[in-house]
Amino acid sequence: MLLTVDNMNVYYGAIHAIKGISFEVAEGEIVTLIGANGAGKSTTLKTVSGLLRSKTGSITFLDKDIGNVPPHKLVAQGLAHVPEGRRVFLQMTVEENLEMGAYTRKTGADSHMEKVYALFPRLKERRRQIAGTLSGGEQQMLAMGRALMSDPKLMMLDEPSMGLAPILVDQIFDIIKDLHKAGTTILLVEQNAQMALSVADRGYVLETGKIVKSAPAKDLLNDAAVKAAYLGG
C-alpha cells in the first residue's frame, strides 16, 4: 500500500471532527472520498499532510510512519497536497508559483516545468502573469501544476471542481485522468460525487467524520443510498 490511514481521530478544540477512520490507497489508484459539506473530507487530507494531527492511530506512507512528520518534510518524500480553494500565491507570477512547487527539488526543476507546461499550455502562455489575475480554472490548473513540480508519488486533490463552470470541471477531470494514465496515484476529495466516482477506482463515503461505506466506484455509482444522498436521486 502507498498510503495507509489507521484509526484517525482529529479534534478542533472540543469538536470531534474525524472519528476513527481507516482507509488505504494503493499505487496507481484513484481513490475518492465523497461526502457532504462538513463531513471531514478536507480535515482528513490536512491530517495526512501534517497540517493537522491525529490523536490516535497511524498514517503510513511508503512504509514509513508519517504521523509526526512536519508538513514541509513530506513533499520531498513524494506527497503533494493541492489544498481546497487552490491557495496559489496570488502576488507571485505563474512561473514563481511553479518554482515554489519545486522548492525541495535539487535538480530537474527546469525540465519538469516544461512537462507541466505541456500538460497545461495555458499556464505557459501566462507564465509571467501574476497568479491573482488568472481565472478560477487557470488557478486550479496552476495549483495542480505546482503540486506536480515536486514529481509526487501521491497527489491529494481537495475539491478541484469547486467554483468552476461545468466545461472547466470537465477539463480538470480530463487532466486528472491523464495524470492517472501517466502513473500518478491520486486521492481525490470531492463534493461533486458524480464526477469523482466516474474517474475513481474506489470510493469511501464520509458522513460526520465516519466512513459509512467503501466500495469500488462503479458500485457506489449504482448504490441506491449513495444515489439518493449524493447523486441527486
Binding site: 501534517g50 497540517l51 512536519p70 514541509h72 518534510k73 522548492y103
Partner: peptide
C-alpha cells in the same frame, strides 16, 4: 502570503 500553502510546498516556515 500563505504559510499553510508554503508548508505544502516543502518550505520550512
Amino acid at each position: 502570503e500563505d504559510k499553510g500553502a508554503a508548508q505544502l510546498m516543502g518550505i520550512n516556515v
